[in-house]
């Protein structure tokens, strides 16, 4: 099972970074679109190997934040975005997975999974070999040659995740990857993601609307404020790993959830009031 992970790791060029150093550091990042201030002075640090989940009311600028971290958008001058302590262009340095799976219908599972690797210039054959080895870990064994339109929603999402994992970057950005799945599939995918994460050891920033999901997955939950978006609250989740579904009904879990719900609701009310005004 871990063969595939090892295979990928050999390709990684991770130096021995000091444990305390931030993988990603945002300092006072703002972004304005015309008259709309989407983000206002966001400060956020994510440590190497950390799983951070991000929640916030609709329209709080989560997507803007994501696009900035993915390198698709520039932040307004004044703030800084540091990857491994350096302010470089982030395009091509962060493994980004958008809400929709965005699989290409003319590529089969393997070829969709190697898309990023292919763009990087890795030989197709070698990339396919790696993908073939990873398929089992991603629950896609036996479906390697299927086309996206032949797969279920959960499987398509796993192909998209595999594509993101194959784009060997230390930092992964996942934007509500399970948002469109039914509750049962979603719960299975969450556990499966944690399993994969523990084996492939990446730094993850994960957006979600679902507070349960945010707590269940994250080492830390970050709550964003209503627009203009900034960090309202950061809450460390001191629940033991590996995490078990039984956690969801424990008092410790509920205590965290209560705390986060208050914060999110307060922000949602602001958005609601702004909309009604």
């Amino acid at each position: 099972m871990t063969d595939a992970a090892d295979q990928l790791d050999q390709l990684l060029t991770v130096g021995e970074a000091p444990a305390a150093r931030a993988k990603l550091q945002l300092n006072g990042v703002s972004r304005r679109f015309g008259a709309v201030q989407a983000l206002a002075k966001v400060d956020l640090g994510i440590a190497e190997g950390e799983f951070v989940t991000l929640i916030g009311p609709s329209g709080c600028g989560k997507s803007t934040l994501f696009n900035i971290v993915a390198g698709l958008l520039e932040a307004d001058t004044g703030g800084e975005v540091l990857l491994d302590g350096a302010a470089t262009s982030l395009l091509g340095k962060v493994a980004f997975m958008p809400q929709r799976d965005l699989l290409l219908p003319w590529r089969n599972v393997l070829d969709n999974a190697i898309l990023a690797a292919e763009v990087e210039g890795r030989p197709k054959r070698a990339a396919r070999e790696t993908a073939r080895a990873m398929a089992a870990d991603f629950g896609l064994k036996g479906f390697e040659d299927h086309y996206p339109q032949q797969l279920s929603g959960g499987m398509r999402q796993r192909v998209a995740l595999m594509r993101t994992f194959m784009f060997d970057r230390d930092l992964m950005l996942l934007d509500e990857p399970f948002g469109a799945l039914d509750a049962l599939t979603r719960a299975m995918m969450q556990r499966w993601l944690l399993d994969i994460w523990s084996r492939y050891r990446r730094t993850i920033l994960f957006i979600t609307h679902d507070i349960d999901e945010a707590i269940f997955l994250g080492d830390r939950v970050v709550v964003m404020s209503a627009r203009p978006g900034s960090i309202k609250l950061e809450r460390r989740v001191e629940l033991p790993r590996p995490r078990d579904p039984a956690l969801l009904t424990t008092p410790a879990f509920n205590a965290i959830k209560r705390e986060l719900l208050d914060a999110v609701e307060e922000e949602s009310m602001k958005t609601f009031a702004a909309g009604a005004a």
Binding site: L72, L91, G92, K93, F96, R100, L102, L115, A116, V119
Partner: peptide
Amino acid sequence: RQVALLRSFGASRRDIWWKLLLP
């Protein structure tokens, strides 16, 4: 969003054309 995804992979215009726009 497809284009954005490919760009996030560091794809050049040429890559985007061959792998996404044309197909």
